[in-house]
């Protein structure tokens, strides 16, 4: 497993460097400007960008016989899929931590002029990006193993649209259930946790699905 994770890391590192510079510059501009709109965009975009990078190594691998070669290594097919999900999780968590750091610094520098409901809004922004990242992976990987590397670009777009749709759909359902009145902190955090748990469960189901697809895949 260690070797597979290293392989994924080497596959992603070039793109990570570029994305990291982009996100870093975005973060620094945010720190300087203190723009509220920019803060929301930064929080919701940065983590999914990092997560999409985890998928980029699959595309790069497909140009050689490496996908076939990996099956001859002393690893199970399941481990190959698992390593991809672990890499995706690491990048999603890393992106979330990165976002949390910049959000905290922005609030420290410019004061809390951003969050009407205080901490819960900040947590929503931080976790929101993470949830999107997890959902993108949950949709993308089974599609990748089913359709192959040639469709990576389409899969990336579909998974981003799918993840946003799921989050919006869940939010609409929660709003309908909670009604028009003010939502208490307890209810709000419960809903947020439920969405997070839903995303994690979907990620786990996606892993099982990807594994079963990959077990039948021929190279």
């Amino acid at each position: 497993m260690r070797g597979l994770l290293k392989n994924n890391f080497y596959g992603m590192i070039e793109n990570i460097k570029i994305a990291f510079v982009f996100v870093l510059v975005f973060g620094i501009v945010l720190l300087i400007s203190g723009s509220a709109a920019m803060l929301s965009a930064f929080c919701l975009i940065s983590t999914p960008i990092m997560a999409v990078l985890a998928m980029s190594c699959l595309r790069k691998e497909s140009s050689s016989k490496w996908e076939k070669y990996k099956l001859t290594l002393p690893v199970k097919r399941n481990d190959i899929v698992k390593s991809q999900y672990i890499s995706h999780s690491i990048l999603s968590i890393g992106g979330t931590v990165f976002v949390a750091l910049f959000l905290s610094c922005t609030v420290l520098i410019h004061g809390n002029q951003y969050f009407y409901y205080g901490l819960r809004d900040a947590i929503t922004l931080i976790i929101g990006g993470g949830i999107l990242a997890v959902l993108i992976g949950a949709i993308a990987y089974p599609l990748y193993y089913l359709l192959g590397a040639g469709k990576t670009e389409v899969i990336s777009v579909l998974s981003v649209i799918g993840a946003i749709s799921i989050v919006l759909g869940l939010s609409i359902i929660i709003n309908m259930i909670s009604g028009d009145g003010a939502v208490s902190n307890t209810l709000y955090y419960t809903c947020l946790i439920l969405i997070l748990v839903f995303a994690i469960v979907l990620f786990a189901v996606s892993y099982t699905l990807s594994s079963s697809i990959f077990k039948k895949k021929e190279y």
């Binding site: 070797g3 290293k6 392989n7 080497y10 790069k60 050689s64 016989k65 070669y69 002393p74 690893v75």
Partner: peptide, 29 residues
């Protein structure tokens, strides 16, 4: 599979790797 070594015709490994990185991957495998 530990006891089998395989060589395919053409590009066995992704072009973005170096031999050093490949060595580290195999070390962990």
């Amino acid at each position: 599979r530990e006891s089998i070594g395989i060589v395919y015709d053409g590009d066995n490994f992704p072009g973005y790797l170096t031999a050093e990185q490949l060595c580290r991957i195999m070390q962990g495998t």
